[in-house]
Write a protein that binds this DNA or RNA. Structure first.
Lengths: 199, 199
DNA sequence: GTCTATAAACGGATAGAC
DNA sequence: GTCTATCCGTTTATAGAC
């Protein structure tokens, strides 16, 4: 798809990154340069002109993906919301945004494929740590934070196993998670049994 | 590792499947037959004797992995537990079993690598649907089921992003999830706001 | 039942034409 | 700035020896 003529280098680069995301998400990390290039409407030689190696293309793709999620979180941050948990609420909303069903699967497949490369895993780990630290400093009790983050992550990764996303039940749960971040005492004050082991 | 002589065909097959799981989990779906074979202590030719093609090896591996999870769930089913939610409790325990930290990452990497093959994705989807149906018939209110399954899934997939697993907070959450399956009214009777949209 | 040798295809990357 | 042609290493799979 896409023509060759009349495209700026920037546009070509973007087209190549988009093609790489689609190809790798659909066919795995070993989608060939030839495939990616053709999907972007350029030749393999043309791809190599823009990205010196496959590794370079992939690392750029990873940086783009991580930046995209960060941007989504920023966009979901409500400026009017200054209560504890505001960042956690943005995280929940950001994690559950891409409701375009099959898109989720491709996106998850992409990131997991990318994670199989050690260099990528390291970058992603550092990024995850950064987000975790920010969430931990968001003013919510740890027990509530653990719950809502785990549940949001769980909802977002069901397509990994082929499950459906964004069902009515999922949306209702997401709303309740958001509610809990505003009223953490609801969860904390439930009559929990005493912890079973370790002091 | 492992000698060639004095091994029954069944043992060799099992060794090859185990080697394939290790190699693919560690190095991706394109771990070569040569690597897998050497890891199992046989030659590439020997591998091909037992599995006619790489696809056949992989599909067998997938069937094995899915059966292993099912077996874990069965093992976690408490015969003395006849209350509603017994299957869900087994699911939560099974999902959170492999506490051997780095093992989780390899196992998750394996399944996501395998999922990049369409044939595998189809088999896994059918299996997930089967489990979902069983859980839905487990006698828990939908809202509680959705919560505990999502949270358990979320806990189990954090290593995907490089996060730690089985932290004290995680274990505490897991216990609370199990508790909720025995007392679903705790969750249901919380003062939730009315649903925001759709009738 | 397993191994060696080899065929056939494919992948990434380079050189240089246009 | 992009494409063609090509090299070279790797991979799957086969044929046939042991």
């Amino acid at each position: 798809m896409g023509r060759t003529a009349g495209r700026s280098p920037e546009e070509t680069r973007r087209a190549l990154l988009k093609a790489a995301a689609a190809a790798i998400g659909a066919r795995g990390i070993h989608a060939s340069l030839d495939e990616i290039a053709r999907y972007a409407g350029v030749s393999k030689g043309g791809l190599i002109y823009h990205f010196a190696s496959k590794d370079e293309l992939i690392m750029e793709l990873v940086r783009t993906e991580l930046a995209t999620f960060q941007a989504a979180m920023d966009a979901e941050l409500d400026p009017a919301d200054t209560a504890p948990g505001r960042l956690t609420r943005a995280y929940i909303r950001a994690v559950l945004i891409p409701v375009a069903d099959d898109e989720v699967r491709v996106s998850l497949a992409l990131i997991t494929q990318l994670m199989s490369l050690p260099a990528v895993a390291e970058v992603a780990r550092a990024d995850a740590e950064r987000i975790d630290a920010a969430l931990a400093a968001d003013g919510l009790p740890e027990s509530v934070l653990t719950l809502v983050v785990a549940a949001a992550d769980g909802l977002s990764c069901t397509p990994l196993w082929g499950g459906a996303v964004n069902t009515p039940a999922d949306r209702r749960l997401a709303e309740r998670l958001l509610h809990l971040t505003r009223h953490p005492e609801l969860w904390e004050n439930l009559p929990w049994p005493p912890a079973t082991s370790e002091p």
